Amino acid sequence: MNTRSRLLAALALLTLSAAGPGAHAADAPAMARDGVLVTPAGMTLYTFDKDPADATRSMCNGPCANNWPPLAADKSAAPTGDWKPIARDDGGMQWSYKGKPLYTWSKDQKPGDRSGDGMNGVWHTAAP
């Protein structure tokens, strides 16, 4: 993990621990805000209907993952509560929540945007 990644991870943990009611435990990779899961930076997280329940792999790879970047997990990440890291086809790791891999949407421009909700009838905001 490079220095920038370490700083971002530390900031994420500080943000999560200070988030207060509605947030997940400080070791969770995301938090609840306004009824949806968001990254520590406040970007909306999404689920993909084509991912099977209790997925051990993501069905969104290649060009799909360019549009729907996975919520990256560190190779050393361990399951915690409802959170579990899963392997990706590209060799990376991705966080899943309650068995569903999580993604951001490349067209969301700022925290709170939810422009991917309902996209193609298969993308939905991730609920806590």
Score class of each variant (00 low, 15 high):
Met1Trp: 09
Asn2Ala: 12
Arg4Gly: 01
Ser5Gly: 12
Ser5His: 12
Leu7Gln: 15
Leu7Met: 13
Leu7Glu: 13
Leu8Phe: 05
Leu8Arg: 06
Ala9Pro: 01
Ala9Ile: 05
Leu11Ser: 01
Leu14Asp: 03
Leu14His: 00
Thr15Ile: 14
Ser17Asn: 05
Ser17Cys: 10
Ala18His: 12
Gly20Lys: 14
Gly20Gln: 14
Gly20Tyr: 08
Gly20Ile: 13
Gly22Asp: 12
Gly22Ala: 14
Gly22Thr: 14
Ala23Leu: 11
His24Cys: 15
His24Asn: 08
Ala25Asn: 15
Ala26Lys: 04
Asp27His: 08
Ala30Glu: 02
Met31Gly: 13
Ala32Val: 11
Ala32Thr: 15
Arg33Glu: 13
Arg33Tyr: 10
Arg33Gly: 09
Asp34Asn: 15
Gly35Cys: 13
Leu37Cys: 05
Val38Gln: 07
Val38Ala: 09
Thr39Cys: 06
Ala41Leu: 12
Met43Cys: 01
Met43Gly: 09
Thr44Glu: 02
Thr44Asp: 02
Thr44His: 00
Tyr46Phe: 05
Tyr46Glu: 02
Tyr46Gln: 03
Tyr46Ser: 02
Tyr46Val: 03
Thr47His: 00
Thr47Met: 03
Phe48Gln: 06
Asp49Asn: 08
Pro52His: 05
Ala53Asp: 11
Asp54Glu: 10
Ala55Asn: 03
Thr56Glu: 04
Thr56Lys: 06
Arg57Tyr: 08
Arg57Cys: 01
Ser58Ile: 03
Asn61Pro: 03
Asn61Leu: 01
Pro63Phe: 02
Asn66Phe: 02
Asn66Ile: 02
Asn67Glu: 03
Asn67Cys: 02
Trp68Asp: 06
Pro70Thr: 14
Ala72Pro: 00
Ala72Lys: 09
Ala72Tyr: 01
Ala72Val: 09
Ala73Glu: 08
Lys75Gln: 12
Ala77Phe: 01
Ala77Ile: 03
Pro79Ile: 10
Gly81Met: 11
Asp82Leu: 11
Trp83Cys: 09
Trp83Asn: 12
Pro85Arg: 10
Ala87Glu: 07
Asp89Ala: 15
Asp89Arg: 15
Asp90Ile: 12
Gly91Met: 14
Gly92Trp: 08
Met93Leu: 11
Gln94Met: 03
Trp95Gly: 07
Gly99Met: 03
Gly99Gln: 03
Lys100Leu: 06
Lys100Cys: 02
Leu102Ser: 04
Tyr103Thr: 02
Tyr103Arg: 07
Thr104Gln: 12
Thr104Ile: 04
Trp105Pro: 01
Asp108Ile: 01
Gln109Asn: 07
Lys110Ala: 14
Lys110Met: 06
Lys110Tyr: 06
Pro111Gly: 14
Pro111Lys: 15
Pro111Trp: 14
Gly112Trp: 07
Asp113Gln: 00
Asp113Phe: 00
Arg114Phe: 02
Asp117Ser: 07
Asp117Leu: 07
Gly118Pro: 00
Gly118Phe: 02
Met119Trp: 07
Asn120Ser: 10
Asn120Cys: 01
Gly121His: 08
Gly121Phe: 06
Gly121Ser: 10
Gly121Arg: 09
Val122Met: 06
Val122Lys: 10
Val122Cys: 10
Trp123His: 09
Trp123Ala: 05
Ala126Gln: 01
Ala126Leu: 00
Pro128Asp: 11
